[in-house]
């Protein structure tokens, strides 16, 4: 059974369709990427999955259960999301924000116990932010903030993570570090990824969006080839296996040389 299954998902407002008839399947423990040009609907699909938007038609299943039939609190113990918008207006500390990941596991007024604290400590440790625990989130750098948000998702203790460009705007060392952490966690991940080389390096499978639909999908190495890069992203490119990483590496060739 698929961990996550999206079938026939269409989203739009007024007469405008943003995405049309999207099918996505993510198996247990898989790391699946969604790539596509700006505005191709990556975020829309993810929001329809994690509840930020309600699809016009189509269904989303987690562990075979339609999410419409799962109570919000229960759903938050099955799926954690990292969105793109993470401004926080008040001065919460890093520990407080990561602790919020425990929210769906707690009853009214129930305080955090030893186990919650251990989970929060472990999540912060995994993302390398333990030293920042008592710092105010507001004063952190972009890379630090993003790691705090991912740690919060980890503290939610879900088996499924849905992430919208989790390493956008981050320095390359953080990009690699975060993807390595995600990969090592063994969780099932569905992530929108902007950088094709990062997708090639880490994703087991990818979905390529173009023209409101899934243009291609399958094993990353099979899908990301020169023709697809020309067709979907409108650039000349070359794809070759890199001897150091053992992964496909995409080189973009500018028109003026």
């Amino acid at each position: 059974m698929d961990k996550l299954k999206v079938s026939g998902l269409t989203y739009g407002y007024d007469a405008r369709t943003v995405v049309e008839n999207i099918d996505i399947e993510v198996g247990e423990g898989e790391f699946v990427g969604i790539v596509g040009p700006n505005g191709s609907g990556k975020s829309t699909i993810l929001k329809c999955i994690y509840g930020g938007m309600t699809p016009k038609t189509g269904e989303v299943y987690i562990d075979g259960t339609n999410i419409r039939e799962i109570k919000p609190k229960k759903r938050a113990t099955m799926l954690a999301a990292v969105g793109q918008e993470n401004t926080i207006p008040f001065n919460f500390t890093v520990r407080e924000i990561v602790s919020m990941g425990r929210t769906p596991h707690k009853r009214l007024f129930e305080p955090d116990n030893e186990r919650d604290r251990a989970i929060v400590d472990e999540a912060m440790d995994k993302l390398g932010i333990s030293a920042l625990a008592e710092r105010s989130y507001m004063n952190l750098s972009g890379g630090e903030k993003q790691r705090v948000i991912i740690a919060r998702a980890f503290a939610q203790e879900t088996e499924l993570l849905v992430m919208d460009e989790p390493t956008n705007h981050l320095d390359i060392n953080y990009q690699l570090q975060i993807f390595e952490t995600l990969k090592a966690s063994g969780l099932t991940v569905l992530a929108a990824i902007h950088d094709l080389n990062l997708a090639a390096m880490f994703c087991d499978r990818i979905y390529v969006l173009s023209g409101k639909q899934v243009y291609a999908s399958g094993k990353t190495d099979d899908v990301l080839n020169r023709e697809l890069i020309r067709e979907v992203f409108h650039v000349k490119g070359a794809v070759e296996r890199h001897p150091l990483t053992g992964k496909n590496n995409i080189i973009f060739i500018p028109n003026i040389q």
Partner: peptide, 24 residues
């Protein structure tokens, strides 16, 4: 309000985040 202090904290994170944390 005290009974729902976690929900208030989550709401400050934004509506979308609050909903992924299981808040109605």
């Amino acid at each position: 309000l005290m009974l729902n202090y976690r929900a208030l904290n989550a709401l400050v994170m934004g509506e979308e985040v609050a909903s992924t944390l299981g808040i109605r």
